[in-house]
């Protein structure tokens, strides 16, 4: 295995041999900027929230967050500083989740899964919400994932409808209708609570 400059970031020369890596001696030393790590750390609470909204499971959200952060660090040179960093990281979280879903479906013997099928694991009405999800997500726990995600991005993250559509790979009109459906469902829920 020949180590590229990107991969070298994680390797001390003395450890490279032990890990089966051959350094060619011509690579330029490249290290991950400290500020890049600090920026990821600052985003962690928001990334964890987004990860939980995708996975609806604490352990899965933690695994997804870990995978996404490692992926971001490994690809830090691909980040275009002219773009918002949080958007780039959210995209990585989502792509990592799609990748995980594909792996799970393959493991279940369902073969390779196209992206459009893998993008949302739970798109139907959430009939049975776990206590953990209720605990973490509060009033929005009962919203189906397909509704809570655009609401999260627009309402809490300040995304525009177009930015949300780009991230979730759905048309802008779909984002608009899903956000409205989410609020209407919450309204019904609130009325029921008030009536109770």
């Amino acid at each position: 295995m020949v180590c590229t400059a990107l991969q070298m970031d994680y390797l001390k020369p003395e450890l490279a041999f032990a890990r089966g890596v051959v350094l060619t001696g011509v690579e330029e030393p490249v290290t991950i900027p400290d500020q890049f790590r600090a920026d990821i750390l600052l985003l962690l609470p928001r990334l964890r929230r987004f990860a939980f909204s995708l996975t609806r499971s604490g352990p899965d959200a933690d695994d997804l967050l870990q995978d996404a952060c490692i992926s971001a660090l490994a690809n830090w040179q691909q980040y275009d500083a002219a773009q918002p960093f949080d958007r780039w990281m959210f995209r990585i979280v989502r792509n990592s989740w799609i990748s995980e879903i594909r792996k799970r479906k393959v493991r279940l013997g369902e073969g390779n899964v196209p992206a459009e099928d893998a993008s949302e694991l739970q798109t139907e009405q959430v009939a049975d919400v776990s206590l953990e999800v209720k605990d973490v997500m509060g009033e929005v726990a009962h919203l189906p994932q397909e509704l809570s995600q655009p609401l999260l991005l627009v309402c809490a993250e300040g995304y525009s409808y177009q930015e949300t559509a780009d991230l979730l790979d759905v048309p802008k009109g779909t984002v608009m209708s899903r956000i409205h459906r989410a609020r209407k469902l919450l309204m019904v829920q609130l009325k029921e609570e008030k009536g109770a």
Partner: peptide, 8 residues
Amino acid sequence: ALLSFENM
């Protein structure tokens, strides 16, 4: 919704 998301 905002309150729930903030709590997360």
